[in-house]
Design a protein around this nucleic acid. Structure first.
Lengths: 106, 106
DNA sequence: ATTACATATTGAAAAAAATCGATTTGATTG
DNA sequence: CAATCAAATCGATTTTTTTCAATATGTAAT
């Protein structure tokens, strides 16, 4: 079983590794194959593959396979979803106006 | 020395832990003191303190100290900054239209 | 079918992060 | 100024994540 917190934390994990941020930045310029990403990053092949998996599972990156190669690109849908999710998370809603218990002890 | 990738990864790390997401959600309803957060979370005092430090350093949470207590709240400025940063990161800009090298080998 | 190459998976090691209990700091009260 | 209480820091442990080398898988070319 997964809580909504676990699910969302997993999505945001896409953005909390230095190398994944580099990858995303490279994808801003359009679709890139693994070998192009590889040569611009200071990591091994299996590590890149691991990061791509995390990015794809978070929904912000899509993969297209053609012949021997994998082409990665930013997903509009996933990108919007992640941004909206963060925006919602950080939006105040005042549904819970609970006062601090410690106030009364002051 | 810190790269922009390290700096941004640190900011987004605020959102990739389950308990920090819970804390942020609690703060949506307005300012909360540490003791209120404490009683709603399945973590110890020192762990909460650790998470609050990370949230504050990422800029999305502010702290106000009064008497013995610390009151935490979402920072409008920091929230907007983080959301904008993510939005920018996921926006295509096509400044780099590099073709894949492997294309030519096909 | 064998070879070659791109990517994924596996298993292990290293690094980073989360957690806790104990202690310290800092402010408040008696 | 001693006692109290909230929050921060410290030190150690556990858990998670990152990384790599080796191997497996899947596709294409000979």
């Amino acid at each position: 079983m997964s809580t909504v917190y676990e699910i969302n934390a997993k999505i945001f994990k896409a953005f909390c590794d230095e190398n994944r941020l580099r990858i995303i930045e490279l994808l801003q310029g359009g679709e890139k194959c693994a070998c192009t990403l590889q040569e611009k990053l200071p990591i091994g092949q299996s590590t890149l593959s691991h990061h791509m998996k995390i990015l794809i599972e978070s929904g912000v990156v899509e993969v297209r396979k053609d012949k021997k190669w994998s082409y990665y690109s930013l997903s509009d849908k996933g990108s919007i979803a992640a941004t909206e999710k963060l925006s919602m998370l950080l939006t105040k809603n005042y549904s819970d106006q609970t006062e601090c218990v410690c106030e009364s002890e002051a």
